[in-house]
Design a protein around this nucleic acid. Structure first.
Lengths: 153, 153
DNA sequence: TACAATTCCGACCAAGGTGCTCGGAAATCC
DNA sequence: GGATTTCCGAGCACCTTGGTCGGAATTGTA
């Protein structure tokens, strides 16, 4: 059409994408000790230094725990069945809020137009739909492929 | 507007937000002739020059038609019940694609990892959920508020 | 003890997207 | 002819994205 390529809607950034792959790898190795970022970066062909940033966010969100030093690495903070795709996305990309007037949890009052706003319904319904979809998938379910787990330390 | 968009996931930009409001206004005036951008900008308190950009995308998508000259303006290209929130979002923000491997319609082959990719399921399910939610709402339904229609020309 | 592995931390940077503004051409009505 | 309004493209400041880099702190092993 125009000279500018139309971007895509609801695109999840590399933070969400890489982070999800990282978490699935960790889930594969669940119960076998820690896995180093180096191993994950190699296996998934991702920039290791960048993964450090992402895993920091996951740790702060209480989804993974790290162990320093030689033979160290990361592991899930709880069992794969207890972590949802929603948990991962929220930790890396923030709360699911199509619009400020549809913030998760809070009874937000930011919007002055609330009363007769015909569009509020759209974003509220959308928010609920996204959250429901992501919260309905656990890491345990995503691991159901034939790929073997990474070597643990 | 709010100059501080906190990092939130799945945030729809002002293109989608303003565009949706614009379309709801047009839906309110359906059957009464054209409405000028000036009137809409005033009513919704939005920058008129910016709306021009958005309405251009809506016109190219075949959702609205414009009439030039004095007394001109825009009107929906078809009845409000025949236009969904998904139509509007796609026209303004592009196709609904959480990841390139989950493009709408196309049998995409971009992803080399497809075979044993544990995360593909997440984005595919998410895409379907978003599309279903947005495609299930029509402009006719969104107009169900007590607010009066704009004066038409 | 030395050393390598590994997490942890903060700064920095290029490229591109967001959210507009501006000036002007073309059509249409009075 | 003049006012109105759509149509069109360029430009611009700011922010986010997608990383890199250097260096600390911690821990297992030779």
């Amino acid at each position: 059409m125009l000279g500018n390529p139309i971007p895509t809607a609801f695109h999840v950034s590399t933070r969400g994408e890489y982070g999800m792959r990282l978490m699935v790898e960790l889930a594969r190795s669940w119960g076998r000790g820690t896995v180093s970022l180096h191993a994950i970066a190699e296996r998934e062909d991702l920039p290791e230094a960048y993964l450090e940033q992402l895993v920091a966010a996951l740790r702060k969100a209480g989804l993974v725990t790290g162990k320093r030093g030689a033979g160290g690495g990361y592991l899930l903070a709880r069992e794969p069945a207890g972590i949802t795709a929603g948990d991962v996305v929220r930790a890396l990309e923030g709360p699911i809020e199509p619009q400020i007037c549809t913030a998760e949890g809070d009874p937000v009052v930011n919007c002055v137009r609330q009363q007769d706003c015909g569009t509020h319904e759209v974003w509220a319904k959308l928010q609920k739909s996204i959250a429901t979809a992501l919260d309905s998938m656990t890491l345990a379910e995503l691991v159901m492929t034939k790929r073997p787990a990474l070597a643990t330390t």
